[in-house]
Design a protein around this nucleic acid. Structure first.
Lengths: 97, 97
DNA sequence: CAGGATCCCGCGGGATACTG
DNA sequence: CAGTATCCCGCGGGATCCTG
């Protein structure tokens, strides 16, 4: 379970901390398409190593964002709420980057 | 100017790449309050080093998100569009973290 | 196919001291 | 006050090989 450590309970900081690496956000993006197997994710996330993917999925599971069932990873209800963030990012990226 | 390198033109990946570090998002969050001086930012971003803050501001300037004028950093019009992302993050963080 | 185990490298980033 | 310059450490993360 993620802790709000630094930055005194700022919710933005809490999310920032969760997303402050190269891959986490992209894993969520791909899981928004639906449940995925490890290997499928590994392909759609071109360039990620198995080691890293394992770590990200583990961390997201601990955060209550992802669940695994029968070799299939999906977003929890909570995780699906990430769609708003991803969409905002997509909109920004499309317009400016 | 940020490049869409890996992950074939995915706008989410582009933004993710911009935000994939500990501080960038928080710098933007603080600048959404209005123009700030270096020292002020350094305080509100508790724990950041001057070295790091310099780097983040430089990178955000190059990305067209921040401008400096008379020792005052502000968001560009483009940068202010980040508010949507930050708000989505804040909403998520408040609810789940 | 789904990962765990090792090895190793780069760089994000803190601490500290210094300059215009 | 607004940075710049060094030095240095940790860890994110790739490559490769191994296992159930």
């Amino acid at each position: 379970m993620i802790k709000r450590q630094a930055h005194n309970n700022c919710p933005v900081a809490a999310v920032a901390q969760l997303l402050s690496d190269t891959w986490t956000m992209l894993v969520i993006r791909d899981l928004l398409r639906g449940p995925q197997r490890f290997g499928t994710l590994c392909q759609s996330l071109e360039g990620i190593s198995t080691r890293t993917l394992t770590n990200k999925l583990k961390r997201l599971s601990e955060a209550g964002i992802v669940v695994k069932q029968d070799s299939l990873y999906s977003l929890t209800a909570q995780g699906r709420k990430f769609a708003r963030i991803i969409k905002a990012m997509a909109a920004y990226g499309e317009q400016y980057l």
